[in-house]
Design a protein around this nucleic acid. Structure first.
Length: 955
RNA sequence: GGGCGAUUAGCUCAGCGGUAGAGCACUUCAUUGACAUUGAAGGGGUCACAAGUUCGAUCCUUGUAUCGCCCA
């Protein structure tokens, strides 16, 4: 059959994919050899409503390379695909759509109706990313496609929750959590992005109770007094004045002498109606930094993580000031009543508990219902108006040179780290709420040990350090979300708030007793709680499924380093906590795919590269090859379309090597499984080169060095197979020796097949297409991966002869080009003192050298004729006689340049060998190698010096 | 502030205790022979800087500078 002139990726790739799918090529266990070991990869599940971006394309290319390679090797493979319900992200998208289409809002339609809308949207868009993965060529077992909200998965999640609850690994409590005021839900630490933002630090006076005064003294480093004054206040610096209303104390460092005399006294929060101002104690704690601000900090336990710790230590009440939208609270009793109770607490005359404090609203009437940022402005204004802002002098000069000094409020402009929700992009508010937590301290140990003892390997190695660093300092994991889309927490409460955790409502009811009214916790679980169970969940746990037995623990996990904590670490902890086994053996982490200049791809920058556009323009194979070539362990991923173009050209190159073979009849050679028997040096040689390449590819993939595999194949196919071997077959296939031609045809056919096989994991489409151009027992996707080795196939003689031949051709071409010998002319070659090896190599490959270097004859002479261009080739002094036409100056320059390089090298080699310490210390083989190298270079130098001397005689 | 990394050709990046590599870009030449998505030849590097270890350092160690990412 004749091949098309070009490979049309756009039309061929989808058809090839369909053919694989139709033949069941990707089904778990397909092409497995009997008794094969298993090889399993879990896809990092993309968001169900997502679209394929370059990160997915990169990540899935690497996974597919591993899968296809292992499948061809006959492993029992499973690539488990699926999608994630992605709680916040999906709920956000659906809510936005509701708004855009003028439908009732989430709150208006209620939970059940809203969830129906989410499912509708999932059905509508859920298949998209899967189809995009297919365009990339991903060989997942689609029959097993999973989704974190359907099939057995929800049962798995609920069962794990119940088990962990029963083991005491999950608890509920009122804690300060990161609260997203936009989505009105708690989020985990990892979902918060801290961004440096311009901010202000205000300085306010908290008056001492009852008009008390003290002497405030500041000293410099040497203990000299720099400031001494009587104060009736303590100065407080804050970036968040609106939270002053919830202050429970002012804290100073225990060693801070400036405030020692007033510790234990009360001071007044300078906000709110004057008659109800609260008094709070001045306490000591290790937290305040003496050198920061005034050294005294206000303690607002309910709205700051550091203050929360101080308040917990000091038993200081934490007054919650804000509602779920982060507006100042408008509920509760009038301010006057609340403030009176709070004062009693501060005075120590009122008992209090957590629930009582939580119910109190200490927001003064005029602030109630205000947005937090509005409230901030008002607080600052009110305090300043009252004269309680710390003032600083500012001197200005007027037109007449008159200096005036005025006092203005002391406000520092300084960058502050502001927390933002990674999805909502609004400022996160620390908020005191009831949430569910995983007690990570209890389950982190095995996850750390598994990596420390090598059961799980993380690549690159730096990933392990990052992993340790995070897990060693892990915080409790807040797993409840005040969302609707997700796995609802399986806990029911009775009227007294008693918890009944069970897998079903009936079970909870049974535990609570008949007739007890129960309400289910409305919250859902963090998406990562369920995706943390992806390995066992997709394999059917808690059922002892066949898949679980065969494929768990899985083999490799290939994922972005950005989800090392979110996902990888949590899968480790969860799998070990639930089934007491590691989820996977190797973790390959990669970075973010960036643009050609290393910039993050973003819509606003406009530098986003859509993988589907790339596939349309260049084909999936080109994109995949680019991905593989970029994937050095730990390397940066900069995607340049020029590079993709280059690999598209490589696809074409391979295709043309196919059309050459087709043209020469190599596709008429029937398919055979074994390595062909050969006698010709060029055929012996290419077999060895292929074996070496195969070994290099295996070695690269075994160590996840995809870039090495790609560059080895690129260089072999383009340079060795096409530029050399293919060219060398021309004289034989066109020649009169029928036996030689037949052998070469068969060898070319086999060699080209090997290229297709070795390239298939990286470039599945074009290779399968070329494979299909001949009658075959199996599709390429299921063809056996080679097991021959270099030891089997390398013929040392052929190897040496062909290497010499290639070097000879290159030396002649180089000399010709530099001597300006017209390309078409055949020229004679002469040699003095040709040795046996060179003679043998010449005899074997004379036709090739003559044809490709355009040589008409080789003559052995006693002395070089005058005006000969010398060649730096081993085995004799070769030269091209160019008497009369030689450019003497050019030839001198050429020789001098080569001699210069040689001299530098010789200097290094001799220096090393002359150093007695080198002889003593270096390994014998290095010394031998150096000596041999020196001899070779000296020989070359002698010949070239002779040549230079001769040419110098001419001019 | 803590952690992790990077610095190699004009650009994007590999690499390695003992000859400095690729792709792109650049220069010159080639055009009916599988392929112009091509072929041939070529130019281009104090491997950031400094000290140390070593017979030998671009590579290992320490420090400096610059840049990046993650966590506070």
């Amino acid at each position: 059959m004749a091949l098309e002139k070009k490979f049309d990726a756009t039309t061929r790739e989808p058809r090839l994919y369909q053919a694989w799918e139709a033949a069941g090529c990707f089904v778990a266990g397909a092409n497995a050899k009997p008794e094969a070991s298993s090889y399993c990869i879990m896809i990092p599940p993309p968001n169900v409503t997502g679209v394929l971006h370059m990160g997915h394309a990169f990540n899935n290319t690497l996974q597919d390379i591993m899968m296809r390679w292992k499948r061809m090797q006959g492993f029992d493979t499973l690539w488990q695909p699926g999608t994630d319900h992605a709680g916040i992200a999906t709920q956000m998208v659906v809510e936005r759509r509701l708004a855009e289409t003028q439908q009732p809002s989430r709150a208006e339609m209620g939970r059940d109706a809203f969830l129906e809308k989410v499912w509708e949207w999932k059905e509508e868009s859920g298949g998209q990313i899967i189809n995009q993965l297919k365009r990339l060529g991903a060989s997942c077992d689609w029959d097993r496609e999973a989704f974190t909200m359907s099939g057995n998965f929800p049962d798995t999640v609920i069962k794990v929750f119940v088990e962990m609850y029963n083991k005491g690994l999950i608890y509920r409590g009122k804690r300060l959590v990161n609260w997203d005021p936009h989505f009105e839900t708690a989020i985990s630490d990892l979902e918060v992005e801290n961004v440096e933002t311009p901010g202000h630090m205000w300085h306010f006076k908290y008056p001492l109770a009852g008009g008390a005064t003290y002497t405030y003294i500041e000293k410099d480093e040497d203990g000299n007094i720099t400031l001494e004054e009587t104060r009736d206040y303590i100065s407080i610096a804050t970036t968040r004045p609106e939270t002053m209303l919830g202050d429970g104390a002012v804290a100073v460092h225990p060693s801070d002498e400036r405030y020692a005399s007033i510790v234990g006294k009360l001071c007044e929060i300078p906000v709110g109606p004057k008659e109800f101002r609260r008094l709070i104690p001045i306490i000591t704690d290790e937290y305040p930094d003496k050198d920061f601000g005034s050294g005294a900090v206000k303690i607002t336990g309910a709205h700051d993580f550091n203050d929360y710790q101080v308040a917990k230590r000091g038993g200081i009440p934490m007054f919650n000031l804000m509602d779920t939208k982060a507006a100042m609270r408008a509920d509760g009793k009038p301010y006057a009543e609340e403030a009176a109770v709070a004062q009693a607490i501060a005075n120590g005359t009122q008992e209090f508990d957590e629930a009582m404090i939580a119910a109190m609203n200490l927001v003064p009437q005029e602030y109630r219902g205000m947005d937090r940022f509005e409230a901030r402005k008002k607080v600052v204004q009110d305090i300043t108006d009252e004269g309680l802002a710390v003032m600083m002098p500012v001197t200005t000069t007027d037109d007449e040179g008159e200096e005036t000094t005025t006092l203005i409020p002391y406000v520092e402009n300084k960058p502050i780290m502001q927390p933002y929700g990674d999805r909502s992009k609004v400022v996160i508010e620390p908020l005191l709420t009831d949430q569910w937590f995983v007690d990570t301290d209890q389950i982190v140990g095995p996850a750390l040990d598994a990596v420390r003892n090598g059961d799980v390997k993380i690549m690159p190695e730096s990933g392990e350090k990052v992993y340790y660093n995070w897990l060693d300092n892990i915080e409790p994991w807040c797993i409840s979300r005040q969302l609707w889309w997700g796995h609802q927490i399986p806990v029911w409460f009775d009227a007294d708030g008693n918890q009944f955790c069970a897998t079903t409502e009936a079970e909870a009811q049974a535990n609570a007793g008949e007739g007890v009214e129960l309400t289910r916790d409305p919250d859902v679980l963090d998406t990562w709680f369920s995706s943390g169970l992806w390995p066992i969940g997709t394999l059917g746990w808690p059922e002892e499924t066949d898949a679980l037995k065969r494929y768990f623990p899985t083999s490799d996990l290939i994922t972005g380093q950005d989800i090392l904590f979110f996902w990888v670490a949590r899968m480790m902890m969860m799998q070990l906590a639930v089934v007491d086994e590691i989820p996977f053996k190797n973790v390959y982490l990669h970075g973010l795919v960036r643009d050609a200049h290393g910039k993050k791809m973003s819509k606003s920058t406009g530098n986003v590269i859509d993988p589907l556009d790339i596939i349309d323009e260049y084909g999936a194979d080109a994109l995949r090859f680019t991905n593989a070539a970029m994937a050095s362990l730990g390397g940066a991923l900069k995607l340049d379309t020029k590079r993709i173009e280059g690999y598209r050209n490589f696809v074409t190159k391979l295709w043309n090597a196919g059309t050459y073979g087709d043209f020469k009849g190599t596709f008429d050679v029937p398919h055979a499984d074994g390595v062909p028997e050969t006698t010709l040096p060029l055929n012996n040689w290419i077999k060895g080169e292929i074996a070496k390449t195969g070994e290099a590819v295996d070695a690269a993939l075994e160590t996840y060095r995809f870039n090495d595999a790609a560059s080895t194949l690129y260089s072999f196919v383009w340079n060795t197979f096409c530029s050399q071997y293919l060219e060398f077959t021309k004289p034989v296939l066109d020649g009169d020796d029928a036996a030689a031609a037949a052998e070469t045809k068969a060898t070319y056919a086999w060699g080209f097949d090997q290229c297709l096989i070795l390239l298939h994991p990286i470039m599945p489409f074009v290779t399968e297409e070329l494979w299909g151009a001949k009658e075959r027992p199996k599709m390429l996707v299921h063809t056996d991966w080679p097991t021959y080795t270099a030891v089997d196939l390398v013929d040392a003689q052929a190897d040496a002869d062909l290497s010499w031949t290639v070097a000879m051709i290159e030396a002649i071409r180089s000399a010709r080009a530099q001597m300006n010998v017209p390309g078409g002319d055949f020229v004679p070659l002469v040699v003095v003192g040709m040795d046996a090896a060179a003679t043998s190599a010449w005899n074997q490959n004379e036709a090739l050298i003559k044809r490709f270097a355009r040589i008409e004859s080789l003559t052995v002479v006693d002395t070089m004729p005058k005006g000969t261009a010398a060649l730096a080739v081993s085995g004799g002094a070769f030269g091209i006689p160019l008497d009369g036409i030689i450019d003497v100056a050019a030839e001198k320059a050429r020789l001098e340049k080569t001699l210069g390089k040689l001299a530098k090298e010789l200097g290094g080699l001799r220096g090393r060998l002359n150093n007695p310490k080198f002889a003593d210390s270096a390994p014998a083989e290095v010394i031998e190698e150096t000596k041999a190298n020196l001899a070779l270079r000296e020989d070359e130098e002698t010949k070239l010096k002779d040549a230079l001397a001769r040419i110098s005689e001419l001019g």
